[in-house]
Each structure stands twice: as structure tokens, then as C-alpha cells.
């Protein structure tokens, strides 16, 4: 059953189209991943779901309640853990949780039980009574997650919860998310970590530049390629002319498909090769015939990155680097301020 229905959702920030006609359905009790580089629109989508932003167009329903028309009812249903960890440095972790519990109107006896439970679940016993200003990144993320879970929300919205975390904190959070999913909580998780989404998500949507590139089950998305991912370089630093020539050779080989030239990685050629044919040998022969040498060739199972690469011509990592240079974080921060 679809617990969350997002239809034709659009949002502009002055000159930037952050979301363009987004349509997503999320099943109850599933972990839904949102994958995309920085600046793709993930945070805007999640902030809209969390009632912090009003969309310009479209509708969102959670449990058949309209997010835009009845935000207060939605706030009772959701827990939101933002990308930027906003803690009060003066409060201790326990005081922060106590404060949060009061904002969610949890009664006194349940409050103490929930706080103790979450302290244990997220392994925070040793530092919970220290001021938040003394916490490391991992501690801050764990206390923030605990605050989002205090009222046992039906839907947990997590915006890049493991960015910059140490392995211990990351594993604790992953473990908790799996437990919550088993308990029937719907979790929406945005990330630009492929492995995180691949490992945790039941379904995933891949977003780029405010648009949906693809969505579905991660395994299905990867299997759509029907073969292995090959990355070929004929020189360490090739050029567009040379790689176009190689592309033409590859196009003639039966069993090779979805050829993409990745300019940001030395004009490497990325393509899918059928598994049941000895294509690599054939490829070597054809290239040699046209007087091309192989500088490097790697063969792997397709990943979600390939889905992204196929649609955009860039890997997620390249897109990250590109967007990091392009974004005006100060301006975005001002825009996100209420």
C-alpha cells in the first residue's frame, strides 16, 4: 500500500528550478532511498515532505493526509532529521531529548522510557549528559537521530544521515534503520553514497537537476543493463575525437550497448557487455585491427552509479565535484531560513 504519494511536485528558488514535476509513491514499511549528487534537489524534496517548504505546484499525501493543507497532522506522523545538525550547544544531550519530547507532547512516564531506550539503542550512555557543544560529528548525528525518533513516527525522513561519519557511528545508524524497518516504520533516506542506498533501500529514486532519472528496486535497476559494466581507456588521457572513433568501433560489435563517453575521466568509454559472449577477446581484436591499444579495461557488475551515468553522462562522483563548484551555499542557506 502506498503510504506516501507525491504528484507533480515542483519548486523554484528565484532562478533555480529545484524540483521539476516529481512523482513518487512510497510503500508503507519500506526504506526508500533518494540518490543524487549535491544540489540535485534531494533536500528540497525532503524539506517539502517535512512541511518546512511549500511547493509551487503538486501534491503530497502521507496516510492520505495532505501535507500542504494539514501540516500539523503531518508533523505528528513524521520524524525529520535534517542534513545540517542543529543542536543547542548549551544543552546536554539528555536535556535536548527532554526538550524535544515536550515539543511532541509525550507524557512524562513515556518520555523517560523513550529517552532511556534510545540512549541504549544508539549507544549514547557515556556522553549523553555532556553538553552538545562538546560532541563529535558522529555523536551529534546520533543524538539528532534519537530526537527524530522520540515520538515513534510513522515516517522517518533522513537527509544524508551518514555524511562525514566515522565507521562506528555509520554502522550503528545502519543497524538502527534496519531494526526500524523490521518494526514497520517507513523510512525515507537521502544519500549520495551508492553503497548506503544499495545496501539499505527497498526502492530508490535517482534524482538529477530536480528531475527523476529512474526509480525502482536497486537490483532491478542494475539488472536492466543485462550485462557487465566495462570501462575502457585507449590512452591515459584521451580526447573526444579519439574516443568517438573508438565508440564507432564498439557500436559495431554485437553484444555491446549503452556506450557513454565520460569526459571527466580522461574520455573513458563506459558500456555494457553481454555476459554470455566472449566480447572482451573480440573487442581486443577489433581495436588492434584499427590500431588502438588498450591502456586499461575494467569489468564489474553494474551499480546504481551506472544508472546515473547512463542518464547524465557523468558518474555521481563527477557530478558531486561539478556541483560543489557551482553551488552558492551561502545563498542556499539564506533561502532555507524561515
Amino acid at each position: 500500500m502506498n503510504q506516501i504519494q507525491i504528484q507533480n511536485l515542483s519548486k523554484d528558488y528565484l532562478d533555480v528550478k529545484a524540483l521539476k514535476k516529481i512523482n513518487i509513491n512510497i510503500t508503507e514499511g519500506s526504506l526508500f532511498g533518494i540518490l543524487g549528487p549535491n544540489g540535485a534537489g534531494k533536500t528540497t524534496l525532503l524539506r517539502t515532505l517535512a512541511t518546512l517548504i511549500s511547493p509551487d505546484e503538486g501534491t503530497i499525501k502521507i496516510n492520505n493526509i495532505d501535507v500542504i493543507k494539514e501540516p500539523r497532522k503531518i508533523r505528528e506522523l513524521i520524524g525529520y532529521v535534517a542534513q545540517e545538525i542543529a543542536l543547542d550547544k548549551i544543552l546536554t544531550g539528555r536535556e535536548l531529548l527532554d526538550f524535544q519530547a515536550d515539543l511532541y507532547h509525550i507524557d512524562q512516564s513515556n518520555k523517560l522510557k523513550r529517552i532511556e531506550l534510545l540512549i541504549n539503542q544508539l549507544d549514547m550512555q557515556n556522553w549523553i549528559d555532556r553538553k552538545c557543544g562538546t560532541y563529535s560529528g558522529g555523536m551529534k548525528r546520533r543524538i539528532d537521530l534519537a530526537a527524530g525518533l522520540l515520538h515513534l513516527p510513522k515516517v522517518l525522513i533522513l537527509d544524508e544521515p551518514t555524511v562525514g561519519l566515522d565507521i562506528e557511528s555509520r554502522n550503528i545508524i545502519w543497524g538502527l534503520l534496519n531494526d526500524l524497518k523490521k518494526d514497520g516504520m517507513t523510512i525515507i533516506l537521502s544519500s549520495h553514497y551508492l553503497d548506503e542506498i544499495d545496501k539499505l533501500a527497498d526502492n530508490v529514486v535517482i534524482i538529477n537537476d530536480g528531475k527523476i532519472i529512474d526509480q525502482g528496486n536497486p537490483t532491478q535497476l542494475k539488472n536492466k543493463f543485462g550485462g557487465d559494466r566495462i570501462i575502457l581507456k585507449v590512452r591515459e588521457f584521451s580526447d573526444s575525437l579519439e574516443s568517438e572513433k573508438v565508440r564507432k568501433i564498439l557500436e559495431k560489435i554485437d553484444g555491446i550497448s549503452q556506450i557513454v563517453i565520460n569526459a571527466s575521466q580522461g574520455y573513458s568509454l563506459n558500456f555494457i557487455a553481454d555476459r554470455d559472449k566472449d566480447l572482451i577477446s573480440k573487442l581486443k581484436v577489433e581495436l588492434a585491427f584499427s590500431k588502438f591499444k588498450i591502456f586499461s579495461l575494467s569489468q564489474s557488475q553494474p551499480s546504481l552509479d551506472d544508472v546515473y551515468l547512463q542518464a547524465t553522462g557523468k558518474t555521481l562522483q563527477d557530478a558531486e565535484l561539478y556541483m560543489t563548484g557551482k553551488r552558492d551555499l551561502k545563498k542556499e542557506s539564506k533561502q532555507s531560513m524561515r
Binding site: 512541511t51 518546512l52 497532522k73 513524521i78 542543529a86 524535544q100 511532541y104 524561515r338
Partner: peptide
């Protein structure tokens, strides 16, 4: 609270 994002914690809470 606005600048450091703490206000968002209040705004996503179901305050009466």
C-alpha cells in the same frame, strides 16, 4: 535559532 537551523526543529514539531 533561525541562522543555525534550530528553528526548523521547532517548525517540524506538531506544536499546538
Amino acid at each position: 535559532d533561525r541562522e543555525f537551523g534550530f528553528l526548523n526543529r521547532l517548525l517540524v514539531a506538531p506544536l499546538t
